[in-house]
Nucleic acid binder design. Sequence first.
DNA 1: CTGAAAGCGCTTACAG
DNA 2: CTGAAAGCGCTTACAG
Lengths: 339, 339
Amino acid sequence: MNKKTSLKDIAQHLGVSTALVSYVINNKEKEARVGADMVKKIRQAVIDMNYQPNLVAKSLKSGQSKTIGLVVADISNPFFSMIARLIEDEAMKLGYVVIFGSSDENAEKSQSLINVYLNRQVDGFIISPTEHTEEQIRAVQKTGIPVVLIDRYFPDFPTDSVRINNKEVSEQAVDHLIGKGRNNIAILTYKTKMAHITDRTEGYKMSLKKHKIKVNKKLICEASYQDIEKDVRNQMLNLFNGEQQVDGIFFATNSLAVLGLKVIIGLGIKVPEDLAIVSFDQSDAFDFFYAPLSYVSQCLQQLVKEAINLLIKRIQQPGKSRNSYESVIVEAKLVTRES
Amino acid sequence: MNKKTSLKDIAQHLGVSTALVSYVINNKEKEARVGADMVKKIRQAVIDMNYQPNLVAKSLKSGQSKTIGLVVADISNPFFSMIARLIEDEAMKLGYVVIFGSSDENAEKSQSLINVYLNRQVDGFIISPTEHTEEQIRAVQKTGIPVVLIDRYFPDFPTDSVRINNKEVSEQAVDHLIGKGRNNIAILTYKTKMAHITDRTEGYKMSLKKHKIKVNKKLICEASYQDIEKDVRNQMLNLFNGEQQVDGIFFATNSLAVLGLKVIIGLGIKVPEDLAIVSFDQSDAFDFFYAPLSYVSQCLQQLVKEAINLLIKRIQQPGKSRNSYESVIVEAKLVTRES
DNA sequence: CTGAAAGCGCTTACAG
DNA sequence: CTGAAAGCGCTTACAG
């Protein structure tokens, strides 16, 4: 319960100035040309008195909090919790700590998280942004604090971002379904204008067009984030109970695939005989499904590594002109299995 | 890219002292008896100059970082990411931010996380501890910074902790299996001395004894955290390919259930006809399984609420004698379905 | 080689 | 009603 020992305590104990102690602690004894025995004495005292630096004070002085602010839609979503974990690991290696928050696809929550993080002087942001948050991001950029978008991005306004080749890989996914002889292929996606999602629909359409298959709007099912379970259910029931003879489906995200498959299981549809499927990412749930599903595999590890690298680069060259932003695109690839 | 405006900037702009500005910003104009028009002027300047407080400076001065350090085994494990999310929500409401780290069941990593958090002056810890970290927790307690253990706990040494009734609910789970007429009941659990797990084995044994069924060590399967996938596989294969006629199984955690069920599916064992199952918690994966599983339902929301309440209480009464710790036990309950 | 001092951005007793 | 000043725990030019 006794107070932590501070730099000053050590200095007083030794009858020297805090400057000396600070230099030694930060291994700057050479630059400051501190005497060898003084160094020894100080190092010993540091150990004896169990000195632990107050990082808050250090932050205030240095202007560096060594903290990264992470904003995702929902940290309890496995996709984001995996990203969080990988960011944690990379950040830790570099001496950074991560504070996280979930925006719930809500621009106001996003803003409030960003504000809190700004006030806490984070050194950088990693954000998987929500609709209508362009201005928030721009405002952060104006402060000079680096932001890297991850997974999601805004095509129409310049930011640093790391994402996958959504359009291309989605096209490949649908190519695969067509290659299996399917031509009534549906897509289950989110009702959103966010490009990482619309790109996937775009890829879906491109594949169909390439194969001279007419795009049928009834086969494009969009579920809203808010009411996702009910929405997916209704959309899927519509799809399979209607007149269209759907024989293939592309799930634009993992969460959608999990929900969609539950309906498919409920309906007793045979996979892959009656329905070929490509999902996004894997899931424990899929291993419980009787047919091995084809899926789009994105290397989250690489995504995160690129994001952290970019962010750290920005943090380290602060003055650098902020007119050039980088978009890193990580290649996701299609893994085909029975479906 | 221009620097943030500070309290001082506002004071200078207005030609007043920083004290005034500080009082007004913190709504202490009454205590400080600041003049009404001065308050107005300051409030306006705060808006005009878009003042945002530097929370790092505030922390240094106040000694309160308004930050909670969360240590779990692995934030990408759905169990912990759900806990993280709930903690985030509760903490946010109270003006706290959460920094998180994963110990990977490794005492050294745990120690290093705790050290980092201490140096960053967190106001409190929420920890789901790993084996052999008792001394680390004790060391934190000695600093006077509150720690609340969640989910996992150490029965032999006093801490604040929030957990479920592991033993009792496990006993109920096995009672249920026995009630279904099973008497060769196995348990799949972790190889660990942590009480939250051994309690579950204890409950398993208690149920068997109560029903005069002899405990058979061969039916107690323990998988190690490190090599979990392979271990579960081997244990399960052993169990079902051996001479014992296992007709019921209790999975001591959700992760174990997911892995174990994969093996069961692979072996083509019929559930519930040939094997009755009780798992811990639910999982998307289970919805993909043909039979609805019985499971132990723990209300994580309540668990987290209790943990945060306790932690905040401790933070707010810092001087309080640290000889009395609280153990909050949240009732988990058995949900029985076909299995 | 070492110390005194200023300052990071805040808060808060203390004067007046 | 308002200002000058000390101090939270650090770092770092500047003297000497």
